[in-house]
């Protein structure tokens, strides 16, 4: 099941040139960009791992693309997203967020119905991918979830 999270996620995956164009647009607006990755696709998982620190005062998309490709190289089977932060209101708030990498196969979610007292039903949504420990999901074995120095 294809995860649809963030902008452009109902479109076909963006090409690198399209990503570069989006990033350059963000930078032209004066937004700061950071890159995050995760292998837990649950929609309520908002705390993704940061790839290096956010990039402030960057004017050109090239260094951002370099960072993104470095992240892809290290985590080819993870979800990777680019976030752009707008400081216009005095605090950093997300102005644009979109996926730039996704695992080759996305097994999707299982719905568990749990009957509790009074015939009430609790619904639990869980990703099949999270059956395996962090770092071993989506066939991404070998890295063991360790963060390499980058």
């Amino acid at each position: 099941m294809r995860i649809t999270q963030g902008s452009f996620s109902f479109l076909p995956d963006l090409s690198d040139d399209e990503i570069r164009g989006q990033i350059q647009y963000c930078l032209d607006q004066g937004w700061a960009i950071n890159i995050e990755y995760t292998d837990d696709p649950h929609p309520r998982n908002t705390y993704w791992e940061m790839w290096n620190i956010p990039m402030f005062d960057v004017r050109d998309a090239a260094p951002v693309m370099r960072e993104m490709n470095a992240c892809r190289e290290q985590y080819p089977h993870h979800y990777i997203r680019v976030n752009a932060y707008n400081f216009a209101r005095g605090r950093e708030s997300v102005a644009l967020s979109f996926l730039v990498n996704r695992p080759p196969e996305e097994p999707g979610f299982g719905l568990t119905r749990q009957e509790v007292r009074g015939r009430t039903i609790n619904y639990v949504l869980r990703s099949y991918a999270t059956d395996r420990p962090e770092g071993h999901r989506y066939g991404g074995a070998g890295l063991n979830g360790q963060r390499r120095e980058h």
Binding site: M55, D57, V58, R59, D60, A61, A62, P63
Partner: peptide, 8 residues
């Protein structure tokens, strides 16, 4: 610094 200067 190199990131900030990129493109310039």
């Amino acid at each position: 610094i190199l990131k900030k200067a990129a493109g310039g």
